[in-house]
Design a protein around this nucleic acid. Structure first.
Lengths: 144, 144
DNA sequence: AGCTTACTTGTACATGCATGCTTCTGCTCG
DNA sequence: CGAGCAGAAGCATGCATGTACAAGTAAGCT
């Protein structure tokens, strides 16, 4: 029975529902209209915002909240799509920089329109859902 | 450059960071101390709360925010671990009920202690992080 | 009889963990 | 002071797993 579910637990289950809903919308839109996965899009975003458009694998991993090995493969895909390229670190030959190409910046800029519009739409849907509306409201108040 | 990132986008990236952090803590704790994955734990929770401790695959899928095929395999694992069992729907022979066993209820009750304690700890960690604290605060206010 | 619903199965893929390989760093010992 | 070595740091790779998508099967509906 629900006996005494912690208020934190109830809160978190709401966040999970919101997260699942929004991420699914975002992922579908990006994949369908730009051929980009969510992680790929976000990786391009971090790279585009980084000085000189380059980051080390490690930094990209923590920024994305992903495993280091996942980032190796993620960057492999980006390289294969010519959106980024690898560059060796001159002062530390263990290090590898991933550098965003102009193509990568372009693709990301295009995708960002979709991303932000889809996000707004997903938020609107959530606001219309009785279970999600309260959480979204709290988040929006906190973001001001 | 960050040019004009939507406020929604900034908000969502914060939610993503919080989500990644908390889920990783929860998943690790459940796996290590109870041999349960997050989806398995949550599935047991929905089943335990359902009338007669049973749900149809479809309902479980939407409750978990998962695909139907994912639920087929998820329930397969739960069955293999003797935490649940299948039961055919008498009036609709296409339907399959997944019924929680006593063992399943026990395991879930044990795991819940870990889950809720880990959740509280993860929230505390988030509250100490300057990037996450504001979001968490908004969520907590909204949950009252 | 089609057409929809409810699952299952085949397949592909992104991710995580453990491991291996290279490079760097620090420390000890001659 | 320099050589050498143990251990850490930074990535890549092998393997296992969880999930999604597409197609298949079986049962109900109109």
């Amino acid at each position: 029975m629900p006996s005494t579910t912690t208020s934190d637990a109830r809160l978190w289950s709401g966040v999970l529902a919101l997260h699942a809903h929004v991420e699914s919308r975002l992922g579908a839109a990006l994949q369908r209209r730009h051929g980009l996965g969510l992680s790929e899009y976000r990786a391009l975003g971090f790279l585009a915002d980084a000085p000189d458009g380059e980051l080390r694998m490690q930094d990209l991993a923590t920024a994305l909240g992903l495993n280091q090995s996942s980032v190796t493969r993620l960057v492999g895909r980006l390289n294969a799509a010519d959106l980024t390229h690898r560059d060796l670190c001159p002062d530390d030959k263990r290090g590898v920089y991933t550098v965003i190409r102009d193509e990568g910046r372009t693709r990301h800029a295009e995708a960002r329109v979709t991303y932000e519009r889809t996000l707004a739409a997903a938020f609107d849907e959530a606001a219309a859902d009785s279970d999600l509306a309260a959480i979204l409201e709290g988040l929006r108040r906190a973001s001001r």
